[in-house]
């Protein structure tokens, strides 16, 4: 009897696996067709040659050598990296008090409203929001007009790093607040009480207990901000002025100048590799445990 039962167990487990696979199959096919296949194509493309503004399949490492040998590339690379990292830090810092307040200070009902309000920014196109920022930030825009009233300015906010950063924050703040909020909401309240009980004051408890306890969510939120802004093309172009370029702007410039799609592919692959490395590092850091 036991043998028959265990066989039955295996076959039913097998059928569950088959069942599960059937349902996950569309997703798998989608990923293969529209992510993995293009990625492989992108890798192949990066070795093609361009002759007379026409691309030819080839195995030519020249694109890599040329691209990675140019200081323009590396300047854009490190600028983009620094901008995205700054955006992750600044957005996280701006989001935290907000997420903290919603998680710990609001009533259940008010918290639901706050979450609902956080979703609203996603209703409007990001491009539209960035264009409207131009009206605020330009030299004769709303903010400088207000400054002029008290005899200050005008301040050059548009076409600067400041403008880029405003765009980045616009892009990622609601998402970062939501991600932080969901991790803060699940912090065990008795840990906070225990910290107070062990003589840790209110503000100190935030840094000693709440931040470490919510670390996974906080790091993932910052990671999402990094990913979104690292590849963003809209803010650095329309609010940052596009010069000096970020990697995404460099890609469009490269494709425009003499059909250099293979060299653009090199930049794109470098970006993907960077994102993979950063995401891996961030996730390992988020889940790293203290002690053995």
């Amino acid at each position: 009897m036991p043998i028959i039962q265990s066989r039955k167990g295996i076959s039913s487990r097998k059928s569950i696996t088959v069942y599960g696979l059937t349902f996950s199959l569309p997703m798998l096919v989608w990923q293969l067709l529209f992510f993995l296949a293009p990625l492989l194509f992108l890798i192949a493309l990066s070795f093609w040659s361009v002759r007379n503004f026409r691309m030819e399949p080839d195995f030519n490492p020249d694109n890599w050598v040329r691209m990675l040998g140019r200081s323009v590339f590396w300047e854009a690379y490190f600028r983009t990296l620094a901008l995205a990292a700054s955006a992750a830090v600044i957005t996280s810092a701006l989001a935290f008090p907000c997420a903290y307040g919603i998680a710990f200070k609001l009533s259940e009902a008010a918290r639901r409203w706050a979450i609902f309000l956080m979703v609203i920014p996603f209703f409007t196109s990001y491009l539209v929001r960035v264009y409207s920022w131009q009206i605020f930030l330009s030299d004769n825009g709303i903010i400088n007009a207000l400054f002029a009233k008290i005899g200050l300015g005008p301040f050059g906010m548009l076409n600067s790093v400041f403008g880029t950063m405003v765009g980045y924050v616009t892009l990622s703040l609601p998402l970062v607040v939501l991600l932080q909020l969901f991790s803060l909401m699940f912090v065990d309240k008795t840990l906070i009480e225990a910290a107070h009980n062990l003589r840790c004051g209110r503000l100190r408890t935030v840094f000693e207990v709440i931040v470490p306890a919510a670390k996974v969510g906080l790091v993932i939120a910052a990671l999402f901000c990094f990913i979104l802004t690292f590849g963003d093309f809209v803010s650095p172009l329309y609010l940052g002025g596009g010069d000096p370029p970020t990697l995404s702007i460099l890609i469009t410039d490269t494709t425009k100048s003499g059909q250099q799609w293979p060299r653009a592919a090199v930049i794109a692959l470098m970006m993907i590799a960077t994102l993979l490395a950063v995401a891996f590092a961030a996730v390992s850091y988020a889940y790293r445990e203290r002690g053995r």
């Binding site: 008795t190 009980n197 062990l198 470490p212 306890a213 002690g291």
Partner: peptide
Amino acid sequence: TWQRDTPMVWQSLALFPFLTVRENVEFS
């Protein structure tokens, strides 16, 4: 509570999961 000298042991113990044993004991 953080100005009282009335430490408590919780039913759930409320140990800090992000600290080692030594760091937990060292906390206060």
